[in-house]
C-alpha cells in the first residue's frame, strides 16, 4: 500500500534533487521486476553522482543503448514512479534523463 501521507512527506526531499545534473556511476537493465513495475520492464536503473556531491539511485528515462554507459551526463526530472495502489494515489519521484 502506498500511504498518501508518506508520498506528501517525501516530496520535500525530491524537490532538492530535481533539476540537478550528474554522471552515471553504474547502470543495470532490469528484465525481472518486482510487483508494481511489470508494465515498465525492461527498464534501466542508474546510480548517479550528482553535482551536489551526493549520489542517488533512480530509473533512467528516454534512454538509448548509446546512453547506457558510466560517465554519461544526466539530469534529474520528475516522473511517475510506479502503478498507483487501490487508493489511486499516483506516486511521483525522481528519474534521470540523458543530456
Amino acid at each position: 500500500m502506498i500511504s498518501p501521507v508518506k508520498v506528501w512527506r517525501n516530496q520535500k526531499k525530491i524537490q532538492k534533487i530535481l533539476g540537478l545534473y550528474g554522471i552515471i556511476v553504474s547502470w543495470t537493465k532490469v528484465h525481472v521486476p518486482p510487483v508494481g513495475f511489470s508494465s515498465q520492464a525492461p527498464y534501466v536503473i542508474v546510480v548517479v553522482k550528482l553535482e551536489s556531491g551526493k549520489s542517488y539511485i533512480a530509473q533512467l528515462v528516454d534512454w538509448s543503448e548509446n546512453s547506457l554507459k558510466t560517465g554519461q551526463k544526466v539530469k534529474a526530472v520528475l516522473r511517475r514512479t510506479k502503478n498507483p495502489g487501490e487508493e489511486g494515489v499516483i506516486p511521483y519521484g525522481v528519474k534521470f534523463k540523458p543530456v
Binding site: 518486482p34 513495475f37 536503473i45 542517488y56 539511485i57 533512480a58 530509473q59 514512479t81 510506479k82 525522481v94
Partner: peptide
C-alpha cells in the same frame, strides 16, 4: 531504501 524501491530495484 525508499529511493531503491521507487526505482523498481530488486
Amino acid at each position: 531504501s525508499d529511493p531503491e524501491r521507487d526505482a523498481g530495484a530488486s
